[in-house]
Computed example of a mutant assay.
Amino acid sequence: MIAPPTDRLRILVVDDEAPARQRITDLLKKDMQVETMFEARDGIAAVEIIQRESLDLIFLDVQMPELDGLGVIETIGTAQMPLTIFITAYDQHAIAAFEANALDYLLKPFSDERLEAAFARAKMRHIERNMQQFGLSMLRMVSSIVPAGRCLDRLVVKSGGTTRFLRVVDIDWIEGAGVYVNLHVGGKELLYRASLNELADSLDPMRFVRVHRSAIVNIDSILELQPISHGEFDVVLKDGHRSRVSRTYRAQLEKRLGQSL
């Protein structure tokens, strides 16, 4: 059973100055979404807590003795870090902070309003991330129980603050975007957290065909094939999108159509 996403937050505040930590924790504890607060006075202690606890958000001071904030990121790894808001008295660290995928950057001295704005942004990102992970978990669960020969007919997609069950047959084409895909449906785009390869293995091969390493198209959405030089083709879809049929995937399209191009 997959547990539904929660908006509760486990937060770590890292700063070598106790009054600075106290100010942040006192303000955040008033929020009903805060479940647990941790504190660390240096980067070494922060790394230990991050590795031991399941955290959602970190307020991380940049300048600290022994191991600074950027050192914490390097030790843990950017991909493994929770949502991170950097704190520092020096604005020259801003570029390095955002290169480390920081959600926000608080420059000391900052007001309560600025802190609250950063926290509000973090809460929204936390909800979005949870819903994306929930959708992917649902996809994996459904994939695991679909009998052999059966394909997915619904995707759980978060869009505009709501979660919808999207009929797979309504998708015109799918565009790869790293660990995400863009689902193109009726002229609109929906971001979905799953790789193109994951979806390709779960879609009906009679309806969907891969024409490029970054594109899968719905056969029913193809308007025409336009020849390009040297035996290459463009797929033209009903929504006006064009996608090149790469040599690697041309054979798959020919097999599905039952004829040579």
Rank of each mutant, 00 (worst) to 15 (best):
F119I: 00
F119L: 02
A120P: 05
A120R: 14
A120K: 13
A120H: 11
R121E: 01
R121T: 00
R121V: 01
R121Y: 00
R121H: 07
R121W: 00
A122F: 01
A122G: 07
A122M: 02
A122H: 03
A122V: 00
A122S: 05
A122E: 03
K123I: 02
K123D: 00
K123T: 05
K123N: 04
M124W: 04
M124C: 02
M124K: 14
R125K: 10
H126G: 01
H126R: 09
I127H: 12
I127N: 07
E128V: 06
E128I: 03
E128Q: 15
E128Y: 06
R129W: 04
R129S: 06
R129L: 08
N130I: 02
N130F: 00
N130Q: 15
M131T: 05
M131A: 03
M131W: 14
M131C: 01
M131N: 07
Q132F: 10
Q132V: 01
Q132T: 03
Q133N: 12
Q133H: 13
F134H: 13
F134W: 11
F134L: 08
F134Y: 15
G135Y: 10
G135E: 06
G135W: 06
L136K: 15
L136A: 04
S137V: 02
S137C: 05
S137R: 14
S137K: 09
M138N: 07
L139I: 11
L139T: 09
L139M: 15
R140Q: 15
R140W: 11
M141H: 08
M141V: 08
M141F: 13
M141I: 05
M141Q: 11
M141N: 03
M141A: 12
M141L: 13
M141P: 00
M141E: 10
V142P: 00
V142F: 01
S143L: 07
S143Y: 05
S143P: 03
S144I: 10
S144V: 13
I145Y: 06
V146R: 05
V146H: 00
P147R: 06
A148M: 10
A148Y: 12
A148W: 07
A148T: 12
A148H: 14
A148V: 13
G149I: 12
G149D: 05
R150A: 11
R150P: 00
R150K: 09
R150Y: 00
R150L: 03
R150E: 15
C151S: 04
C151W: 04
C151H: 08
C151F: 04
L152G: 12
L152I: 14
L152W: 06
D153R: 15
D153E: 14
D153H: 14
D153C: 03
D153N: 13
R154H: 09
R154Q: 08
R154W: 06
R154N: 03
R154G: 02
R154L: 05
L155N: 00
V156D: 01
V156N: 11
V156M: 10
V157D: 13
V157R: 10
V157W: 04
V157F: 07
V157G: 13
V157H: 06
K158S: 10
K158V: 07
K158T: 13
K158I: 05
G160T: 12
G160K: 10
G160Y: 08
G160D: 14
G160H: 11
G161D: 02
G161M: 05
G161S: 06
T162I: 06
T162W: 05
T163Y: 02
T163L: 15
R164Y: 04
R164W: 02
F165Q: 15
F165Y: 15
F165M: 15
F165D: 14
F165V: 08
L166R: 04
L166S: 03
L166D: 13
